[in-house]
Write a protein that binds this DNA or RNA. Structure first.
Lengths: 332, 332
DNA sequence: CTGAAAGCGCTAACAT
DNA sequence: ATGTTAGCGCTTTCAG
């Protein structure tokens, strides 16, 4: 029971214990080189017996790869990100990679530091969901395969969704339900994906109805005064929120001020975060397929790492309408 | 602009570029050993110029520590965990550690694998939120400093909350509001923390009122038939849910069946997950101080790592009542 | 098929 | 204060 801090056996020990050279031991353990069948089996047997485990760090110095990747996201407590993270972690594990995750707390400075820290740690690649559409990497990623998710940053491989189309889908749904006087609550305007969502929506609203208002709010359920004003005063029959968190804020504000959704005001969001199906009533929204975006990102990254393929690629995935209960059909 | 895959300069290159020995270079970079002020400055200056960065893997082989820790959680998409993860990551970063996060998808087998993978990767320590109260580590953690969070696993350092007291706080609040016929919806019964919550609640319910029912549900907003039955048939005036996710499921079921909260039924949860303040109405619950538990866990872990202190410790933190709007005061 | 030996990039005695 | 050098544990030529 004396849990002695026995240090892990080394390859050399394994070799001598098995009565072979370190080379053969290494071959057996890695399945590389050539070893006789019985020799290999014997070595592996001994390895099991003495509890041999490779030393990842030593291996990494030799082969120049660590079998790890970094994931950089702005804020894990934003319900948008955990499913991204989970998906990245799972996909990476499936390929034998471990994932360092860093949370930049929405700060571009922390983002720069996080990226540098990952590069220093020698990750083989990084999946990066930037705070904004600006390149805060400060050169740290120059020699680190990287794929950027959901933001447009020049010179990086990127995986995006067709945000404009998503905005159009949302607005079209509202139009088809008979709404004509529609408001837009955008998220932060300095984010391209957000501008595209709203421009897509705007396009169809202007073509088939009128824009009641267009205001901006942080990525938060807390609504800013201008937004509340718009909601209370502008007489829209429906509103498109650029992000579900904002839409949820709208639902909450409406409930607090005694208006019922969708009877008094229809609401449609964007992202389809997990909360959205749990709101009262459940939120109609646009699905951003984060899960598959993450999986694709990891796979693309691994291809880059392993084949060191150089071509910059950007892949665009599609969004889709998720029908729930916050959009009323207006009798015409 | 030719982004040549120039490999990172090595310590040797830095040394020769600066015209000193590798030892001096190493000393300068690490701030160890002794180097003349001007020499050090010169070396650091050259390092900056040529973009020298330590090779973490090589350093790790030498000093036997990687500056990393592992975090093992059951399910990142459960709203309970992201804030834990964020807190761990932030605290770890503050101490210069990187964090491998692994998601075990609630599977004990994946948990065993994850733990082994982390040990193999040579993490300096691990923060472990086990799926259940059973030790699935299969010895992988024998020589890895570990602190377990929110579950009781023998032979490990542990950080827990006073769940029984939390259960009592919840039930007391209900009793004080005048409720006498109270139901309990427990989470999975094979989890100690859950049994303690419910036993705490039960204790005060039995002392001051009557138990309308006691049923069990998974950690999910989806309610099982037995739970729905109990809710619909047992005539409780209030219910204690062992976890907020379950409480949210109750709110949803009640809304769907046209009963209003808290007028028709009072509900109190446990955990105070982020969603809880966004439900309609906002959920009264018991705060589990996950954020500080995580920070404490990391700090305890780092103490273990750095001082290799052996004493097993378990620290217990307190819960508190979070008053919101799902508990009605009954006129007596 | 197997082994001896060189060396990955780094740290830390041990000289000087 | 600075340099020389022996490894850390591993992979991988290169001989045999």
């Amino acid at each position: 029971m004396a849990e002695r801090p026995q240090k892990r056996p080394t390859l050399k020990e394994l070799a001598s214990e098995a009565g072979v050279s370190v080379a053969s031991a290494s071959y057996a353990v890695n399945g590389t080189g050539s070893v006789g069948d019985k020799t290999r089996e014997h070595i592996l047997e001994v390895a099991r017996r003495i509890g041999y485990r490779q030393n990842a760090a030593a291996r990494a110095t030799k082969i120049g790869r660590t079998g790890t990747m970094g994931l950089v996201v702005p804020d894990l407590t934003n319900p948008f990100f955990p499913s991204l993270a989970q998906s990245v972690i799972q996909t990476a594990r499936g390929h034998g990679y471990g994932v360092f995750v860093t949370d930049t707390e929405g700060s571009e400075q922390l983002e720069t530091e996080a990226l540098a820290m990952l590069a220093d740690r020698g990750v083989d690649g990084v999946i990066w969901f930037p705070v904004r559409d600006s390149d805060t990497s400060a050169g740290a990623l120059a020699n680190v395969p990287t794929v950027v998710v959901d933001r447009a940053i020049p010179h990086f491989d990127t995986i995006l969704a067709d945000y404009a189309e998503g905005g159009r889908q949302a607005a079209n749904h509202l139009i088809e339900a008979g709404h004509r006087r529609i408001g837009i609550i955008s998220g932060p305007d300095d984010i391209l994906s957000m501008r595209q969502r709203c421009e897509g929506a705007m396009e169809v609203i202007l073509a088939h109805g009128t824009l009641a208002f267009r205001v901006t709010n942080a990525f938060s359920v807390d609504l800013e005064p201008a937004v509340i004003d718009a909601l209370d005063e502008q007489g829209a029959t429906a509103v498109f929120a650029g992000a579900d968190v904002i839409a949820i804020g709208v639902l909450r504000h409406l409930a607090a001020t005694g208006r019922s959704v969708p009877a008094d005001l229809s609401v449609i969001g964007f992202d389809d975060i997990p909360w959205s199906e749990l709101t009262a009533p459940p939120l109609t929204t646009i699905d951003l397929p984060l899960h598959s975006m993450a999986a694709e990102a990891v796979e693309a990254l691994i291809r880059k790492i392993e084949r060191r393929e150089g071509a910059r690629r950007t892949v665009v995935v599609s969004t889709s309408l998720v029908l729930r209960d916050t959009v009323a059909r207006l009798k015409s």
